[in-house]
Computed example of a mutant assay.
Amino acid sequence: MKSPRLRPLRHDETALLEAATLGNVNWCGPRFTIDDVRERPEFAHYTHLESGRGDFGIVAEQSDILGVAWAVLLPESDPGYGFLNPAVPELSLWVTPTARRRGVGRTLLRALIVQAAIFEFERLSLSVEKDNPAKDLYLSEGFTDVPGREEDGVMVLRLVRR
């Protein structure tokens, strides 16, 4: 596969984030619907970026969108699955089924890590279910399990400070 073109995720791409979140929560098969993603607070907060709180993301595309990686800074009153604290962005990553196992996810993840470092974040967090094959990607890129949060699949990456 030819290297995808990367571009910033726009704040108006809610439909993309809804589809990506649906894909993420259904990684192992149908469990939730698009209505669940839109209506359930534990999913809905992943479906939009808020520039005022510092959210950011990257889209990989060729002729179509291949995947997206994004990070949100959620408040303690509305934490995500991989929440550590309000100053640690929680990342999500989704690749279309037809583009998986072709390096798109790794490319997106690395680009998001670079972006987080540019924004001077010290860490990134995420949550991944234990049987999800994406966990191998996160481990290979330096993410480690958060002690005491292993059951929730919470992982963290410490970013190198310049």
Rank of each mutant, 00 (worst) to 15 (best):
Y46M: 08
E151L: 13
E120H: 15
L93H: 02
P30N: 06
H45I: 14
P75Y: 13
A99Q: 07
R161Y: 11
E141M: 02
F32Q: 11
D136W: 04
P89Q: 12
V114F: 02
K130N: 12
N24M: 14
L9N: 02
E76L: 13
V104K: 00
A99Y: 02
V72E: 00
G103K: 01
M1I: 11
F32D: 05
P41Q: 11
D36C: 09
A20P: 06
G80T: 14
E120N: 13
F32N: 06
H11K: 06
E13V: 04
A116D: 07
G57F: 09
D55E: 10
G29C: 07
A15T: 09
R101T: 11
R53G: 07
V114A: 14
F121L: 04
V156D: 03
G142C: 07
L17N: 03
L137N: 07
V128F: 12
A134E: 01
V68D: 00
L91F: 04
V68G: 00
G23H: 11
A117R: 14
L17H: 02
L17Q: 03
R38Y: 09
K130H: 15
V37D: 02
P75R: 06
L124P: 10
L9M: 10
A87N: 10
E39C: 13
V104S: 00
R31N: 14
F119L: 15
L137G: 05
V104T: 08
T14L: 06
E90I: 07
H45P: 04
I118G: 05
R123M: 14
V146L: 07
S51Y: 08
A19M: 08
E90D: 09
E90S: 03
V156R: 03
L137W: 12
G52P: 03
D36S: 11
L73D: 09
S125Y: 12
T96Y: 01
S127I: 09
N85A: 07
S3W: 05
S63Y: 06
L112Q: 00
I113A: 03
E129F: 12
S140G: 10
F83N: 03
R7V: 10
M155R: 02
P89T: 01
R149P: 05
G82Q: 08
Y81C: 08
A99P: 07
F83I: 07
C28H: 14
A117D: 06
D136T: 09
E122L: 12
Q115D: 15
P147M: 12
R38S: 11
H45Y: 11
E122M: 06
S140A: 15
V104C: 01
D64M: 08
G82I: 05
F121R: 07
G105W: 01
L74S: 15
S51V: 12
T21K: 01
A87V: 10
P147C: 12
I58M: 08
L124D: 03
L139N: 04
G57S: 04
V154C: 14
A134F: 10
S92T: 04
A117L: 03
S92F: 03
R38H: 10
R123E: 15
T14R: 15
T21W: 04
V59F: 07
L112A: 01
N85I: 05
R158V: 09
V104R: 00
R149W: 03
R7I: 04
L109A: 05
K130I: 12
T14Y: 05
L109N: 00
P4R: 02
L91Y: 02
H11P: 04
